[in-house]
């Protein structure tokens, strides 16, 4: 698994890519907060928020198809919000009988459901734009500047470095199991009893834990050998330029305008 498996767009160059990662993180979080604050049924504000994400993603030269397919990640969760249709008081539209429940859909419920889905969909696109336009080390560095505790930031950057190594290790473990027939074949007896299959999976997890633990000791020794003394150093200074302030202010005022649009 290559380190760039998930990041085809991070190496592009655009005004959005060049923006200071701190600005991007703050704007993204404020934007998601703003989405959560847009009142239910303020369709104009939702449209404006979506247009803002779309414009920024175009400026960053992300393909609309990429944005769309990635944004469907959260779709299964929609089922949890479906129940909102039936749980808000309002004018009844239709009734369903499922099992022991009689469910009555209301217009207010539908508005709430649509608002939740829009909030979620627009927010996730903003998060995708952030991830797709920022190299992970820069992203992590932004959090250090934003006063997230050093231990967390360093741990996250370590995790990211070894994520791909250990994922490969896991894929190897799974491949080894598959080739030794713990797979469940339809109608066949291969793969053993359920408990046995679970035990094999558990042994794999235990094995992976030991390998990871021992690897972390090796990594630590290697770090000591290279003069590590408790803090990670970086060569990237990350200085805020006037352009970064300008972009940040512009984005914030647009978000404020969206909020106003949603409330008039």
């Amino acid at each position: 698994m290559h380190i760039n498996t998930f990041d085809h767009y991070q190496t592009l160059n655009s005004p959005i890519h060049r923006l200071d990662p701190r600005v991007k993180v703050v704007i993204t979080v404020v934007f998601i907060l703003s989405n959560a604050l847009i009142p239910e049924g303020a369709w104009l504000a939702f449209a404006a928020a979506w247009l803002l994400v779309l414009a920024i993603s175009q400026m960053a030269r992300l393909s609309p198809k990429f944005l769309l397919t990635r944004s469907l990640v959260a779709l299964p969760f929609a089922l949890a919000a479906v129940t909102a249709i039936f749980s808000v008081a309002g004018n009844p539209i239709f009734s369903l009988k499922i099992g022991p429940w009689l469910l009555t859909a209301t217009d207010a419920g539908l508005v709430r459901f649509a608002s939740i889905m829009l909030r979620s969909w627009i927010s996730i696109q903003a998060a995708i734009v952030l991830t797709a336009t920022t190299q992970f080390p820069d992203l992590i560095h932004a959090f250090r500047h934003l006063k997230v505790p050093d231990i967390l930031v360093s741990t996250v950057s370590f995790m990211y470095r070894y994520l791909f190594v250990l994922s490969d290790e896991t894929l190897r473990l799974i491949r080894a199991r598959e080739s030794r027939s713990a797979r469940l074949t339809p109608g066949g007896k291969s793969g053993g009893a359920l408990l046995w299959r679970a035990k094999v999976a558990g042994n794999m997890a235990g094995q992976l834990f030991l390998r990871s633990y021992e690897r972390s000791e090796r990594v630590y020794n290697a770090m000591l050998a290279r003069g590590y003394h408790g803090t990670l150093l970086t060569l990237n200074p990350h200085v805020m330029r006037p352009r970064d302030w300008l972009w940040g202010a512009l984005a914030l005022s647009l978000i404020l305008a969206i909020q106003l649009l949603g409330r008039i």
Binding site: R161, L166, L173, G191, A198, A201, E217, M223
Partner: peptide, 22 residues
């Protein structure tokens, strides 16, 4: 020792979530 240990352990949990049994 904390940072390398916990970083690698977090990667372990992430990877272990891929392990499944049918």
């Amino acid at each position: 020792r904390q940072i390398p240990l916990m970083g690698v352990m977090a990667a372990f949990i992430f990877a272990a979530q891929m392990i499944n049994f049918p």
